[in-house]
């Protein structure tokens, strides 16, 4: 896609994000943060491409490092949020 096309996506996503996140109650701000944190591990996709198809050894090695870091972010982030949220859903006692 063109740069401007990507920019369009960026701007629209920012508006969607603003609309949704301002509606999230304070109660859930911690799980929101760790959940959003896990989503930011989406950079894993880029890491996968570079690690898997890097044409130079250096790029492949860096890709490997990036895959490890991003996977820690994704797996850890979603798990921590899940543990936290399951506490909230029991909140009715």
């Amino acid at each position: 896609m063109s740069f401007v096309g990507n920019l369009t996506l960026f701007v629209l996503s920012a508006f969607v994000g603003y609309e949704i996140i301002t509606k999230i109650p304070t109660n859930l701000h911690t799980p929101l943060m760790s959940g959003a944190n896990a989503i930011s591990g989406i950079t894993l996709l880029g890491s996968v491409v570079v690690a898997g198809s890097g044409s130079t050894t250096l790029a492949t090695a860096l890709g490997f490092v990036a895959v490890v870091m991003a996977t820690i972010n994704v797996v850890g982030g979603y798990l921590v949020s899940h543990f936290m949220l399951s506490e909230f859903s029991q909140g009715g006692r």
Binding site: M1, N6, F10, I21, A36, I42, T43
Partner: peptide
């Protein structure tokens, strides 16, 4: 950072997801 990487790699979902997180963090 994820969103800008999305621009470099021309990857739409990176831009969407990264921007959502950017908005969430900024609002908090």
């Amino acid at each position: 950072a994820a969103a800008t990487t999305g621009f470099v790699l021309d990857n739409t979902v990176l831009i969407i997801a990264g921007t959502l997180v950017g908005a969430a963090g900024m609002i908090l």
